[in-house]
């Protein structure tokens, strides 16, 4: 298990390989469909938000306000990443992301951007909303809550020992491509 702390250096990211299990600590931002389309269309990040050397988490958490009026994340697993494929590569380049956390993997454009800019795709276990919410220690802020709604907003979260696996690295390797090709070949034998 490799420990990763945000902000992440390019050197650290390029040292990671497909199959590496990691444990991530630091502050990250959630962002999914609405955020990706917005940024890709030329939208600006709110003041105080920077993705430079950071991680975006494809996640629409369940967040409720406790009795003291503080935000509390009660469920926070990853959402399917492939929907962001049209936008992700450009956003990695433009905003200096070092990591994307999601599930299901992404395509060739994102893989190429990871290689070019020094970024990796971390796969979290889909559906494991409680285990992953335990790694979220605090909600620091929320942006675009009214415009995009709670699941689609940018949540600034402090995470500690968040478990994930590198499934796309900065060297052009993708576990998802490998498994697809192998399973397609296996299926051909059964038809």
């Amino acid at each position: 298990m490799t420990s990763i702390t945000i902000p992440i250096s390019e050197e650290t990211i390029r040292s990671l390989k497909v199959g590496d299990a990691v444990s991530i600590t630091g502050t990250l931002f959630t962002g999914r469909d609405a955020v990706h389309k917005f940024l890709h269309d030329g939208g600006k990040l709110p003041p105080g938000v920077s993705f430079q050397d950071g991680i975006i988490y494809h996640c629409g958490p369940v967040v409720i306000k406790d009795e003291q009026g503080r935000w509390k994340v009660t469920a926070a697993g990853p959402t399917t990443s492939i929907r962001e494929e049209p936008y992700q590569g450009a956003i990695i380049g433009e905003f200096g992301l070092r990591g994307v956390i999601g599930k299901g993997g992404m395509g060739d454009k994102t893989l190429a951007a990871c290689q070019e800019h020094g970024c990796v795709y971390f796969h979290a276990v889909g559906g494991a909303a409680q285990v992953l919410a335990e790694s979220i220690k605090a909600v620091r802020n929320v942006y675009f809550l009214r415009e995009f709604g709670s699941p689609e907003a940018i949540w600034e979260l402090e995470i500690e020992n968040f478990p994930a696996v590198v499934t796309m690295d900065a060297h052009g390797n993708s576990l998802h491509k490998e498994i697809f090709a192998a399973s397609q070949a296996a299926l051909a034998k059964h038809l």
Binding site: V62, A75, G127, A128, A129, Q130, V131, E134
Partner: peptide
Amino acid sequence: ESALKIIERNIDLAKQKSQPICQDT
């Protein structure tokens, strides 16, 4: 195996905390 272990732990945690198994309800 480690993914399934996380899934197993998640199932127990959700029940114990009475919170959604998955955030996408």
